[in-house]
C-alpha cells in the first residue's frame, strides 16, 4: 500500500489515470490464464492425446459437480470436520510447547535432532500404524492430522521465540514482567508472524493428511468420494471430487490469510519497512 502510494505520487496525474484503466484490464488477465488452461484441458481430452476414459472434458467435470452436489457437500463437510479438529489441537499444542522449548536453552538443544528427524518424516507413513492403534474413525484421522500439523507450528514457534529482539525482553524485564506474563505479552506477540506462517504451512499439510487417511482408510470425506468414483470407473465424478478439493484448499488458505491480516497488522508492516 505504502509503496504504491509513493509510486503514484512520483508519477504525473495522467499516468495515474492510465494505471487505473490498466488495472481493471489487469484483473481480467489472471482469469484469462484459467480460461486458457481450461481450453487446453478440453483440447487434450477431445483430441484423444490422453486416454479418453482417463480424462473427461471440463464440461463433463462441471456437470458431474452439479449432479453430485449433495454428496460432494457432505463429503466436504466430513473432510472439514476432521481437518478442523486436527488443526486446532495442533495449533494449541504447537504454540505452547514450541514457545516453552524455545525459551529454555537445554530443552531447545535436546529437541534439535528430534526436530531434524521429524521435519521430513512423512506422517502419512504412520497411517497404517494409526489404524492399528486407534482403528478407523474420526478420532484416528484427527489424531494423525494433529500429529502431522504439530511439527511446522512447533518448529516455527520455537524459531520465532529465538528471534525475539533482546531489547524487547530487556525493557519488559526492566518494567517488571516475569515468566508467564513476559511470554504472553512480549514473546508470543513478537514471535507471532513466524507462528502465523507455521500455521499456514500446517493448514495445507493437515488437508493433505486428512484426504490421505480418507483415501487409504476409506473413512468418508472427499478422499473416499474420489476413491469410490475411481473404483466405479466414473472418471468425471472423480475429477469433480478433485476440483472441489482444490477449491477447499484454496478457500482455507484465503480465509486464513484474511484473518492473519486482521489479527496481526504489525506483520505486514514489518515486511514493508
Amino acid at each position: 500500500m505504502i509503496r504504491e502510494i509513493t509510486e503514484t505520487n512520483q508519477e504525473e496525474q495522467g499516468k495515474t489515470l492510465q494505471r487505473g484503466r490498466r488495472r481493471s484490464y489487469g484483473r481480467l488477465r489472471p482469469l484469462g490464464g484459467v480460461v486458457i488452461a481450461l481450453l487446453l484441458w478440453e483440447l487434450l481430452s477431445v483430441s484423444h492425446v490422453v486416454n479418453e476414459a482417463a480424462l473427461p472434458t471440463p464440461t463433463a467435470t462441471f456437470a458431474a459437480i452439479l449432479s453430485n452436489s449433495g454428496k460432494l457437500a457432505s463429503a466436504t463437510l466430513g473432510t472439514l470436520e476432521a481437518w478442523a479438529l486436527g488443526i486446532v489441537v495442533a495449533a494449541i499444542a504447537g504454540v505452547i510447547i514450541g514457545t516453552l522449548v524455545g525459551r529454555s536453552r537445554i530443552a531447545d538443544a535436546a529437541t534439535e535432532t528430534l526436530v531434524r528427524m521429524m521435519r521430513p518424516l512423512p506422517s502419512l507413513a504412520l497411517i497404517p500404524i494409526a489404524i492399528l492403534i486407534a482403528g478407523l474413525g474420526l478420532k484416528m484421522t484427527a489424531g494423525l492430522v494433529s500429529f502431522a500439523a504439530f511439527w511446522p507450528i512447533f518448529i516455527n514457534a520455537r524459531a520465532g521465540v529465538h528471534q525475539v529482539d533482546n531489547r524487547y525482553l530487556e525493557s519488559a524485564h526492566a518494567l517488571g514482567l516475569r515468566r508467564l506474563e513476559l511470554i504472553r505479552r512480549v514473546v508470543i506477540p513478537a514471535a507471532a508472524p513466524m507462528i502465523a506462517s507455521g500455521i499456514q504451512v500446517a493448514i495445507s499439510l493437515a488437508l493433505v493428511v486428512t484426504v490421505s487417511v480418507e483415501l487409504v482408510g476409506g473413512t468418508g470425506g472427499l478422499g473416499q468420494f474420489v476413491l469410490l468414483a475411481q473404483q466405479g470407473n466414473a472418471t468425471a465424478t472423480m475429477f469433480a471430487g478433485v476440483i472441489v478439493g482444490g477449491f477447499l484448499g484454496w478457500a482455507l488458505n484465503a480465509v486464513y490469510l484474511k484473518m492473519i491480516d486482521r489479527a496481526l497488522p504489525w506483520k505486514s508492516q514489518g515486511e514493508r519497512s
Partner: peptide, 19 residues
C-alpha cells in the same frame, strides 16, 4: 496470467490426484 491458475493448482491436496 498464471497467478490464479497456479494458486488453485498448488492448493489441490495432492493425494486426491493419486486415483
Amino acid at each position: 496470467w498464471t497467478g490464479t491458475l497456479f494458486d488453485f493448482l498448488r492448493s489441490l491436496p495432492t493425494p486426491l490426484l493419486v486415483p
